[in-house]
Amino acid sequence: MNAKSFLTAMFLCLPAPASTQGFAGLGTNANGFAIPQQGTFLSFPADHGSHPNFRIEWWYLTANLKGDDDLEYGVQWTLFRTALRPGSEDGWSSPQLWMGHAGLTTPNHQFFAERLARGGIGQAGVTADPFMAWIDNWEMTTVGPTLQQLNLKASGADFAYELDMSTQGQQLVLHGDNGYSVKSAGGQASYYYSQPHYQITGTLSLPHGPVAVVGQGWLDREWSSQPLAEDQSGWDWFSLSFDSGDKLMGFVLRGASADFTSGSWISADGTVTALQPGDFQALALKHSNVSGRSIPTEWKITLPAKELSVVIQAVNKQSWMGTSFPYWEGPVTISGSHTGRGYLEMTGYE
């Protein structure tokens, strides 16, 4: 067991090898942890905060940005929480562990950094009202009404960014059944909502100097105790913003016997349509060699109900997050029946 896989095992408390139980151990069962229940109404701002009785949770922001140098950039800011056992305690004995990932994608380089922290001592955490999520000096802080205006900061050894994000008061998007999002045919589910409407201005600090950027951001919030079925090895997750103003979130959970797909269609006017399993189709067109693995970096996406047929291409095919548990995450461009930009996350490729 090397240092990294040790940390991963540590963080997600799974016995090695990870592959037998789904990517990053998300397929383990929910010993003593709370389980998402259909029919629960999410309540805000409380649910912006953390849910220590659930095993895993994340605050996940991705942004497609354009620099004043006319280049395409992508930014990721993620705070993961995982619990060794349910509940919270003060001090080092807290069972809560936190992990932050920051990524910055340029057309030809991927910057990333990782932070790990113990819960219970204040090094990392999330407060709901006023909203603030942090690990070390990485922060996502409300500067106006909750989640409508945010300031976002992260820095690594060779990059940093600081972004101001705001919405025009658009509603949160609750996926699935009012935020109850089914993840497998067997019924595994999570609570899942998003705020996909951020307008962003800010600055990226890169080795050759600062770059001013503008663009759009998409925040995902999800928590659960067992979001994957045991035979699911990973997922391909798409968040696409079309020039028409419509948006699409869709994912494929790759199973040993069958894939499970789902998603949401968010019209320009804000109405959300939950997609039925199988509606959303993603077909890998081209694979690239990334960090010694073959990873699809060009996809064909179809959604017949919306007459959508598009090709998704990675802005940078090497958008690899070489973190404790590694995955591909980066900005994409959209062409075909619709055009636009978006983000793609692919996990579980060995």
Binding site: Q123, W134, N137
Partner: peptide, 11 residues
């Protein structure tokens, strides 16, 4: 401990 957390929070 609070000193440790402050310094971590400063980056």
């Amino acid at each position: 401990l609070s000193r440790y957390v402050e310094l971590r929070r400063s980056g």
